[in-house]
Design a protein around this nucleic acid. Structure first.
Lengths: 209, 209
DNA sequence: ACACGCTTGTGTACGCTGTTCACAATGGCA
DNA sequence: TGCCATTGTGAACAGCGTACACAAGCGTGT
């Protein structure tokens, strides 16, 4: 933010500034566009200063990824909360699953660079509960998906014996569409077509799980 | 192949040699590992020689991508051909769809670098019919998927009104799992778990399309 | 047969990247 | 007040993609 040449030798919160710059770059060009030197430049600091806060370029990218994942979780939460409250239990359960899918795909559409930074980078499932990746509501996108699936089981819309591993199937479906459209062979797919493809995909998941 | 310092000033087929080197690098580290200078080094040639055959690094990577897509198509064809011939029409149609999914996921598992090079790179759907991306049987993976879906419609296993755009849903599902496991948050998923997740995913697609 | 000229490979150079090492400023704590 | 761990700086290196000018080889027309 403050691009004025700082008075002090010390920066104040360089780590945050670098992460911020990294997020900006990821927004514009995905994880590969996160370049360490440029981040230090934007923070008004010499290149090597970064190494006091990140061991590596990859460590910076990972921090950016975590932050981006938190943004995704926030987008999903927003869709979740927008589900009308006057639905039957069963309708609500289906609606929540669809909301998770819509939130995921919507974020991918609206913030392609951040989306790719979030999910195309080292950071395994073991740490899917890491609060750093959670949204304002304190839940990660993975946890939100799991909640939706539990809801389906609770109302009898999903047989309990098919619950195990259902996250993987549902997640794969939306993630695949997002990747195909963002950086894959569906890159040039018409925006509106992509949108309806998303809707149809979510139907498939709901029906097929 | 011939690493002996060539006698001639001319190389013979430098383009093929560069592409070959590129494929090797992609095999080991995905599309990002395809580095132009290293390719020329492996071909025993000066860095700039590459520019006589590829305008860009990205053009080299695209050539590698096309070749990798052809390999994927070949893997899918192999699974397709392995479907037992003594099945009922209906069983065969389902089996062919599953074969396409298995071939896709199997290739991703066995050749992660090439898979990513194939599908995570510029090259839009418009050119999905490009023979350069076809397997030995002359069909691209996209065409094979379409054939499987047509087969389902033909035997009445898929309502005709749901046929349109079904490629996107089916493709998204398998592609998503592959990407999550290869370079996403499911990176460290146990190999066997990933395998059963793939099987379950294919069931979901078959049921939900 | 020979010279012309297009194609293909070479050499040098530039700016960019990530990263290392030795050094300097700073501020909190004894 | 003086020490010292922390945080920033400066210079340097190798590797990358790429541009420009030049050289070697081959095909062709006369």
């Amino acid at each position: 933010m403050s691009s004025a040449p700082r008075a002090n030798y010390r920066h104040g919160d360089l780590r945050a500034a670098l992460l911020d710059a990294g997020l900006d770059m990821a927004r514009e060009g995905g994880p590969d566009a996160v370049v360490l030197r440029e981040a230090t430049r934007r923070a008004g600091v010499s290149p090597n200063a970064a190494y006091r806060h990140f061991a590596d370029r990859t460590e910076l990218v990972e921090a950016v990824s975590d932050a981006a994942q938190a943004l995704v979780a926030g987008a999903i939460e927003a869709e979740w909360d927008a589900v009308p409250s006057r639905l039957s239990e069963k309708e609500a359960a289906h609606a929540h699953l669809a909301a998770v899918g819509r939130g995921y795909l919507g974020f991918a559409r609206d913030h392609p660079g951040l989306f790719r930074a979030a999910f195309t980078v080292p950071s395994d499932l073991e740490t899917a509960l890491d609060p750093a990746k959670a949204g304002p509501g304190g839940r990660t996108s993975f946890q939100l998906l799991a909640m939706a699936l539990d809801g389906l089981v609770a109302v009898g819309a999903l047989p309990a014996e098919r619950r195990a591993g259902a996250e993987f199937s549902a997640w794969s479906a939306v993630h695949g569409l997002a990747m195909l459209v963002l950086e894959g062979p569906l890159r040039n797919l018409d925006r509106e077509v992509a949108r309806t493809a998303g809707a149809r995909l979510i139907e498939m998941v709901d029906r097929g799980l």
